[in-house]
């Protein structure tokens, strides 16, 4: 009896140790980025063009490029993803077609990000002739984030009680009217949370945009959606591996800006989720 108790104590201690090994690096990474990155953050750094082969000046075009690209992605993937989830949750029967769609979503979620880059290059950049451009990058990222949006929207839709639908149908509503007036309004907080998280992922992606939109050095803002753009994740890659003698301060500063953008999106998402949980009446 004593022995089994002691075994348990040792086992739990080992589990705790493993968990600490997993979680502490996260903390260290954040502290590192915050403290090394903060000194770089000045209004010039945020709002100026890069100078001297990116060794000085700011990262304004990369910030703007990331924002444009994320918006473009959202514009393409959110409506499509929500409608796809509506189809799966509200219209589809449980049959082989639905199963095939589900498997397709799982596979889209698992395709390596660099393969999306290749796909975007051959379809959007070359075949459709968009060239390396914001639109090609947005479309590529949109397809990549689609599974995230579909899955989270579906969860939000199925959290709406069945009885609401039954009431709506019983009053003579068509399927779309039921979706439009009862299901979607009550699922919106969940959908928002999921889509914002999807966008935060898109904002941080590098591999899919390498050959579809990212410009190595372009000290001006993109002029149209057929224009190339600098983007933060690729800029970090360039600063840390492609350009010699970039000061650590600028590197960390750029990393901090990207991490902040991604985390602001994450925090907004969890805020909506928390607020909604409190307000939920059913």
């Amino acid at each position: 009896m004593r022995d089994t108790k002691r075994t348990e104590k040792i086992a739990f201690a080992l589990l705790l140790a493993a968990t600490i090994v997993v979680v502490t690096p996260v903390l260290i990474i954040f502290v590192l980025i915050l403290f090394r990155g903060l000194p770089a953050i000045t209004s010039e750094f945020i709002f100026a063009m890069p100078r001297e082969g990116m060794r000085a000046g700011g990262i304004f075009p990369a910030i703007v490029g990331t924002i444009y690209l994320t918006f473009g992605t959202a514009l393409c993937s959110i409506p499509l993803g929500i409608l796809a989830a509506v189809y799966l949750n509200e219209y589809a029967q449980k049959n082989w077609l639905t199963r095939v769609i589900e498997l397709a979503i799982i596979n889209l979620a698992g395709v390596p990000s660099i393969v999306y880059g290749l796909f975007g290059l051959s379809l959007f950049v070359a075949f459709l002739g968009f060239g390396s451009s914001l639109i090609a990058g947005s479309l590529t990222l949109a397809i990549m984030t689609l599974p995230v949006i579909i899955t989270s929207t579906r969860e939000a839709l199925s959290a709406v009680p069945k009885s609401f639908r039954e009431v709506s149908f019983s009053l003579g509503a068509s399927r779309w009217q039921t979706v439009r007036y009862v299901v979607l309004p009550n699922a919106i907080p969940g959908i928002l949370t999921g889509t914002i998280l999807g966008m935060s992922r898109a904002a941080g992606e590098t591999a899919p945009i390498l050959f579809t939109v990212a410009a190595f050095y372009l000290p001006r803002l993109p002029q149209s959606m057929y224009d190339q753009a600098m983007v933060l994740p690729y800029h970090i890659y360039v600063l840390s591996t492609q350009v010699p003698n970039v000061s650590v301060k600028i590197q960390y500063g750029t990393v901090l800006v990207l991490v902040l953008m991604v985390f602001v999106l994450n925090i907004v998402a969890s805020y909506i989720r928390a607020k909604f949980r409190k307000k939920k009446t059913w």
Binding site: V26, S200, G204, I236, S240, L258, F263
Partner: peptide, 19 residues
């Protein structure tokens, strides 16, 4: 903590790895 880890872009982890 684990969710935060998932949210860090891979390029950032790559950079941290280098330095």
């Amino acid at each position: 903590g684990i969710e935060l880890l998932a949210a860090i872009p891979s390029i950032v982890l790559g950079f941290i790895g280098i330095v």
